[in-house]
Simulated scan of single mutants.
Amino acid sequence: MTIKKNLFLICTIAAQKQIKKLINLKKKKKIKLRIYITGGGCSGFQYGFKLDHKKNKDDIIIKNYNNLIIIDSISFQYLLGGTLDFIENLEGTKFIINNPNAKTTCGCGLSFSI
């Protein structure tokens, strides 16, 4: 487990507030937001988000103000330089990643290719 300062994945204020809100709803301070990438989606890779209390050996922990974000080492390389945001619109509420490493993205913003 490595803890990195917030130079690798920027969090908007909206994302920070939503992470804190979700953790407070669970009433478990040891829970963190896990961001991961899996194969699939319209464009080849898709983003995943879940609350997790488990830290794996190869996980990287990013500190964003008072929030900690967990990213596995494979996903981390695809997220470098990205921005985590949280939006609420007619499509619903969701975390999104603005990823400078993505060559193409799908219309909903949940999948990408490199």
Rank of each mutant, 00 (worst) to 15 (best):
T2R: 05
T2G: 10
T2F: 09
I3S: 15
I3Y: 14
I3Q: 15
I3L: 13
K4N: 09
K5A: 06
K5N: 14
N6I: 02
L7T: 04
L7I: 14
L7H: 05
L7Q: 08
L7S: 15
F8T: 14
F8S: 15
F8L: 11
F8Y: 14
L9N: 01
L9V: 06
I10E: 09
I10T: 06
I10W: 09
C11I: 14
T12V: 00
I13M: 07
I13W: 11
A15S: 13
A15I: 13
K17F: 08
Q18Y: 03
I19E: 01
K20M: 02
K20Y: 04
K21D: 02
L22Y: 15
L22S: 12
L22W: 14
I23L: 10
I23V: 03
N24W: 13
K26T: 01
K26S: 10
K26E: 11
K26I: 01
K26Y: 10
K26N: 08
K27Q: 15
K29Y: 09
K29S: 13
K30W: 15
I31N: 15
I31M: 12
I31R: 11
I31F: 14
K32H: 09
K32Y: 07
K32L: 00
L33N: 02
I35M: 02
Y36P: 00
Y36M: 13
Y36S: 05
I37L: 02
I37H: 00
I37R: 00
G39T: 13
G41R: 10
S43Y: 12
G44C: 09
G44T: 07
G44P: 08
F45R: 05
F45C: 00
Q46N: 07
G48V: 02
F49S: 02
L51I: 08
D52L: 05
K54Q: 09
K54M: 11
K54D: 08
K55D: 11
K57N: 08
D58Y: 08
D58Q: 05
D58M: 07
D59R: 00
I62G: 05
I62L: 11
I62V: 11
I62Y: 12
K63T: 07
K63Y: 09
N64D: 15
N64A: 08
N64C: 07
Y65N: 07
Y65H: 15
N66V: 13
N66T: 08
N67Q: 12
N67C: 05
L68P: 03
L68K: 06
I69M: 11
I71C: 04
I71Q: 03
D72N: 12
D72W: 05
S73V: 05
S73T: 08
S73W: 13
S73I: 11
I74N: 11
S75V: 00
S75W: 01
Q77V: 10
Y78T: 00
L79I: 06
L80T: 04
G81T: 08
G82M: 02
G82T: 02
L84P: 03
F86C: 07
I87E: 11
I87T: 12
I87G: 15
N89K: 04
L90C: 08
E91P: 06
G92C: 09
T93K: 11
T93Y: 07
K94L: 06
F95C: 01
I97P: 03
I97T: 00
N98D: 15
N98L: 13
N99V: 07
N99C: 02
N99D: 03
